[in-house]
Every structure is written in structure tokens, then in C-alpha cells.
Nucleic acid binder design. Sequence first.
DNA 1: GTCTATACCCCGATAGAC
DNA 2: GTCTATCGGGGTATAGAC
Lengths: 252, 252
Amino acid sequence: MTAIRGARERARSEITAAIKDEARTQLAAEGAAKLSLRAVARALGMASSALYRYFPSRDELLTALILDAYHAIGAAAEAADPGTAGVGTGGSAAPGGTAAAPGYVERWVAVCGGVRAWALAHPHEYALLYGTPVPGYHAPQTTTAPAGRVARALIAVVGDAHAAGVLHEPPGPLPEEVAADVRALMAELDIALPASVMAALVATWAQLFGLISFELFGQFHRVVEGRDTFFAHATRRLAEGVGLVAEPGDAA
Amino acid sequence: MTAIRGARERARSEITAAIKDEARTQLAAEGAAKLSLRAVARALGMASSALYRYFPSRDELLTALILDAYHAIGAAAEAADPGTAGVGTGGSAAPGGTAAAPGYVERWVAVCGGVRAWALAHPHEYALLYGTPVPGYHAPQTTTAPAGRVARALIAVVGDAHAAGVLHEPPGPLPEEVAADVRALMAELDIALPASVMAALVATWAQLFGLISFELFGQFHRVVEGRDTFFAHATRRLAEGVGLVAEPGDAA
DNA sequence: GTCTATACCCCGATAGAC
DNA sequence: GTCTATCGGGGTATAGAC
């Protein structure tokens, strides 16, 4: 009995995964606005009505895709950080017995690069998250937490630099309204950073996606050709904007 | 005869404008991906086939909307600059006989604010330009020039500061590949600025739209509440990033 | 849980009368 | 330049048999 239920649930989750996979390929062809349950069913050799046993509506399918994508891009951001326990993508750690800890700027640039790499590899899922909202679709509250995962990966780098006492607070006055906003945000997320740094982080977070969206959505066409180098340079300067400073050993 | 032709052409341009207006309202309801000639025709009380006398295809209508929108947002950027001959929106020019020339940072912030204000007032047209590309639509070459109009408004401010000799070059090394890209770009646009400034300008241009898109596409929901202040503060810091410096008289 | 069938909509684009 | 009619597709969602 439990074995049968196990088998049934395995089959169900496999079919659910197949539906989402096919939906992702259709996302690429037609865009999220035209994602159609019938087309997905056709491609899978099922009757369209059968899909409703897995996703009660088109919007539920979209929500599942959005949640998966937020987790995937968040995981990509975390995996790209050479300063976390995980092996990550390696980066350019110094060789030798005890590898030198990567600099905070390097970590920042790596995380940004990981986000961009995921976006370039999954442009339509990226667009689903950070492009034009799908008309008529209303995201449920459950999407807000995963949506912050990339931001948390960036915050981790800055938080570590702050804990190490090597964070340079951005100069200039901070409007009180902005300070109040970021204080509320930090309280909610259980973060302790100078308000000016947190304000810069929020702005920089948005600006990072501006760079990626411009590249992905074609605005850099005939404007920027060396995209990899340009992005690395731009994110390095963003790191400085949030108070990270390049250490002597860091690459230029 | 010429009078008749004049009347005919006036009628034609009025109908063309009506079609575009109705298409813009449908853009808001259903999004660009689902923009439908039939629905536009229905709303105007025409047969769908009659529209084909004005726009030979759905893509041509989209192109017209995109061109209009690029020109509108570009005009908004230019009009917001208090440093140009036009009266602009006034800004906070000092009262008195000869008004003090606005500072470059103030001009920069004003231009960014003008772009944002247009975007907030026309979110669906903004999304058409800077959101997810419409699936299956391929922009003709004619859209590239108007697409640069906002950028030119930003460049004008920095160029004036450079001409006045008050531009501070961003510190740090500039990768040669980036320098080559921006030199080619400056040659094409007939601009003379330090390469490091131009590189910062291109990145900042993208980042500005990152801020606007995050606000418009909902990423700042429950994150940033004082949007006006936040945006003004963020763009002020962007100005510093491209080498503009606040003068003593500038507001904090 | 899958199927067929169905109700009731939508679309782009074209043909040919007026 | 507008119309009706048409071709040949598309869609969401449900009902009811198996």
C-alpha cells in the first residue's frame, strides 16, 4: 500500500517535472504571455485536460516555473561565491598549501558573474523573473522569499567584509527617508550593516540587473562588444560603490 | 486636387493616430505579446481587414509604437535637463536677476528623474522598450537611433562638465578591451570624453534602467517604500560614478 | 488519471464585392 | 478604403465515459 502510493507519487512528480520542462522550452519559443497548456499537452502526447490534474490553471504552472527559476538563479549566485564553504566554481584562488582567502571584491565580482552566467544560459526564465510582468498574472506571496536569494548572496559578501572591519562606508549624506526604509528592511532580514551601505546595496542590486537585462534584451547591441570584460569591470566598480575595497593582491 | 489630397492625407494620419492610440491602450491590458490587430479594429468599429491599409502587419504596428515611445522618453529626458536652452521643468534654479547655472549633478539627477517620470506615467510603453523583447518580433534597424536619445541626454550633461573642466575621471584601471569598445563607440557618436568616463557612462546608463525597471516591474515591492527619495539618492550617487562632483551650492 | 468531445472564445491574413 | 466572408489555425476550461 505504501509502496503503491510511493510509486504513484513518483510517477506524479516525474510527470510534473516533464510538464515544467516542456513549459520551459515553450517559454523560449513563445514567451510567458503565450504559454499555453494545450501546446504543452500536445508536445507531451497528452490530452490538454489531463494537465489540469497537475496544475489547476495556467497561472499555477507559471508560479511553479517562477519559483523554480528564483531558486535556480539564487543557487547559481551562491555557488559562484568562492568565499563560502562550498567548492564553488573555483575562481582564481592562489595555489599553495593554505589557499589565500579570496578578496571581498573578487567574491562580489564572482557572485555577479554567476548571476549573469545563469541569465545568459536561461534567458527566458530570466525574463520571466526580471522582465516585463506577465499581463494578467498575479504573483502569490510565496514568490517573495525566493526572490531575495540573489540579494542575500550579495549581502553575504558585504556582511563578511563588514565583520572583518574592512568595509568603507560610502561617503555623502543619506536622506532620512532612505535610512528609515533600509533600517526597516534590515530589521526584517536580520541584517546589521551601516544604513548607507545597505542603501547602496539595494540600489546596486537593482543596477546589477540593469546591466544583465540590457545585455540580454539587446540594448547593448552595437554598443558593447566585449561583454564579459565589460561586465566584470562594471561589477568591480559596483563593488566599490557598496564599500568593498580591492586588496593589493586582487587582479586589476 | 491638392486640397483633396491634403484632406485625404489628414484623414489618413488621423486614423493612423487613432489606431496607435487604441493599440497603446491594448498594450496596457494584454501586453505587447498579445497585441492584436483584430481587437484594435473591434474597438475602433472597423473591420480588421481595413487596418491592413494602415499597417501591413502586426509587426509594423509594433515598430511604430516602439519608435513613438523611444522618441517620447527621449524627449522627456531632454526636457527635464535644466541646463539646456529649453525652459524644462524648472528645477530649483536660484531666484534672482541672473539665475545661477544649475550644477552638473543637479542636471544629471533631473534627467534621470525625467526618464523615470515618463516611465511611471507610461509603464507599458516603457516595458515595450526596456522589458522582455516581444517574442517573434524583430526590430528593424530604424529603432537603433531613437533608442540612443536618452543616452545622449545623459552624455550631454557629462560632456558639458568635461568641457568646463570639472569632470573627475573615475579611478582605477580600465581594461583595454573595454577601452577599445568605448573608443569605437565615441568615434561613431562623435563624442570626445576620457575612455574611463565613457565606460562608466555606458554602465551607468544600463544601471539607471535597472533602477527604473525594478521599481516598475515590482521588485521593490515591500523593499523600498520611499521611491522618489530613493531614486534621487541613487541617481546622485550614479552621477558621482561618472565623474560629476557636487558643487558647494548643490542640495544634499 | 486519462481520454474524447464540446462550448465558446481568440488570432493573422487574404479574397473579392462595393 | 471599407466591407463580409473565409481559411486555417490557436486558446481555456469543463463534462462525462472509461
